[in-house]
Design a protein around this nucleic acid. Structure first.
Length: 563
DNA sequence: AGTTTCGGCGCC
DNA sequence: AAAGGGCGCCGAAACT
């Protein structure tokens, strides 16, 4: 039996399936199956299912307990391929890809569905435009051809496979949910915010803090209204341009302390308070909807629930089931390790080849042991800091790690000039909006796989506009953040494979952090599996380099105890 | 009245 | 010490 099959839902609730040959072309007749789950279950030898969209097919399979080993998500691949071809903005549905292939009118992508609190059903609504299997196969064959036409077909194949694996993990995590104790959450809220008053107004503690702020100003001020606060400070003879915390903190006024406390608690109340609990927690699970590849950099997003922004104090409510544990693992100093791997800077690779604290090692070499300065310098280089101490420290970083800094400088320059910038595997940063004439004269695309350095000559944002500089910072950050996202996908894929025979489940993923929910006796195996997956992902993503990707792993009952 | 943008802050 | 990159979320403000 072919190890690769294609699958497309049919209009009668069944599915069409067809075997594919090694070349990706159909290797047998299209078969109609009445039961989608049975169609998959009865073909255990299939190692990769090719389908339009994991979100269309997989949630339903999971409800019947059917999992697949690998997938190829045609629409995820289309997004990556269009980006790589410099065609960001073109519709990326399979139907659009077919229209481009056949020369018909290209349908626009359907509008994104907004988040619906608690609507698990949304996972089972048809998403996007269904395509008959033969059409799907035509699009797939064309994608294979386009993949082969990229500068590094092997990397692009790895990227589309990794992104597809990500869609499987996301669907499985959406189904599993993060173990969540509503009673603990309520206790935390009561502890922080006090009693709720009838009528849905502010809880007691917020009302008290608002009164304190008003008392400090000598008149009624609503701390949740920035305009009100700016006006109140102005009346008190203090000029502020915003009510951001860092700006207010430097002000000497008795209203500052209760105001900052108010803002902190207000945030928890509106974003992760009682209504959040009502909306997003059911049956002991927090169920956000993870969306793999939701951003151009490849980072995931969640639809609803703010799952990637859970405040630390609220993590107290994420508690393993009785007899189970949470294995919480986050990558140590991911950004500089990724920068070392993509820039191939010898000094930084050597430092990143150790598992010990990388910022400490960098500071020993370039900052006389001042770890905080070293960290700021590295993050400043990655984020494109333009002023302050970070800039000064950047010079020290550049002296010791010239190739690493030159690498992000070159990405920034390319971004400013509107050229395409790619991650190591070929995920591509959208260039600034420009005319098709501009696009036509594109040449010399910098590629993470090429030597992109220029001898370490500092790059300075010269006479470019503020807009161009912003694009430069975006591109500078993209090569690191995007390559990190690529690596994280490979990590998830490897970990998912290891866990497939166990009771353990991946339940959370946040850029450089994973949580696995597992029986206590599996915890150490899981922790080891994460470490192995991280190193495997490093080798697969970036090739053979000395760079290591260590994790800090904690086996806990409660998420809040992990750090 | 309904929709979009803004300000601010949470996480990485 | 200063205010760089990404995202989502909420209510208020600013619109149509």
């Amino acid at each position: 039996m072919a190890d690769r099959w294609a699958l497309a839902p049919a209009e009668d609730g069944g599915v069409d399936v067809a075997p594919l040959g090694p070349d990706g072309l159909p290797a047998g007749p299209v078969l109609r199956e009445a039961d989608p789950a049975e169609a998959v279950r009865s073909r255990p030898g299939v190692t990769r299912w090719v389908w339009r969209s994991t979100a269309e097919v997989y949630p339903r399979l999971l409800t019947t307990g059917v999992r697949v080993e690998r997938a190829y998500d045609i629409e995820a691949a289309e997004t990556l391929l269009l980006g790589h071809e410099g065609r960001y903005g073109e519709p990326r549905s399979a139907a659009a890809a077919l229209a481009r292939l056949r020369g018909g009118p290209v349908p626009p992508d359907p509008p994104q569905r907004p988040a619906e609190p608690g609507a698990q059903s949304s996972l089972f609504e048809p998403q996007g435009v269904r395509l008959p299997l033969p059409d799907l196969l035509a699009v797939y064959a064309e994608q294979q051809r386009r993949t082969g036409a990229t500068a590094h077909p092997d990397r692009m194949r790895l990227l589309t496979a990794a992104e597809s694996a990500g869609t499987l993990v996301a669907a499985e995590m959406n189904r599993a949910g993060l173990p969540w104790r509503a009673d603990v959450h309520r206790a935390v809220l009561h502890d922080l915010l006090g009693e709720r008053y009838a009528g849905g107004g502010e809880p007691r503690r917020l009302a008290e803090l608002a009164d304190e702020v008003s008392a400090a100003f000598g008149h009624r001020v609503r701390p949740d209204l920035p305009a009100d606060v700016v006006k109140a400070f102005s009346r008190a003879g203090i000029k502020i341009t915003s009510t951001r915390r860092w700006e207010i903190e430097s002000v000497d006024h008795p209203a500052v302390k209760p105001l900052i406390e108010y803002k902190k608690l207000y945030r928890i109340w509106v974003a992760h308070g009682w209504s959040w609990l009502q909306d997003w927690v059911r049956d002991g699970r927090f169920r956000p909807e993870f969306l793999a590849g939701g951003t151009v950099s490849g980072r995931w997003v969640t639809n609803g629930g703010g799952a990637l922004q859970i405040p630390k104090v609220i993590r107290r409510a994420a508690v393993a089931d009785p007899g189970w544990r949470l294995v919480v693992a986050d990558a140590d100093q991911m950004e500089p390790r990724v920068l070392a791997a993509i820039s191939r800077d010898p000094g930084l690779m050597e430092v990143a080849g150790r598992e010990s604290d990388l910022y400490q090692s960098v500071s020993d070499r370039a900052f006389s042991g001042d770890r905080a300065q070293a960290k700021l310098a590295v993050l400043g280089a990655v984020y494109g800091q333009t002023s302050g101490d970070g800039l000064k420290n950047l010079a020290a970083l550049r002296r010791r790690f010239p190739r690493a800094v030159a690498y992000v400088d070159e990405a920034a320059r390319a971004g400013e000039e509107g050229r395409l910038v790619r991650t190591w595997l070929g995920r591509t940063c959208p260039p600034a909006a420009r005319t098709t004439d501009d696009a036509a004269e594109e040449a010399g695309i910098p590629d993470a796989g090429e030597d992109a350095t220029d001898g370490g000559r500092p790059w300075v944002p010269g006479h470019s506009s503020a807009d161009a500089r912003a694009r430069g910072r975006f591109a500078r950050n993209f090569v690191v953040q995007g390559s990190a996202a690529d690596w994280a996908l490979l990590l998830l894929a490897a970990l998912r494979r290891t866990l497939s025979g166990m009771a353990a489940e991946l339940v959370f993923f946040q850029h450089d952090e994973v949580i696995v929910h597992c029986p206590e006796e599996e915890a150490e195996t899981v922790a080891a599996a994460i470490r192995e997956a991280a190193d495997l992902a490093g080798r697969l993503t970036f090739g053979e380099t000395p760079v290591r990707f260590p994790f800090t792993t904690a086996v806990v009952e409660c998420y809040a105890d992990a750090k």
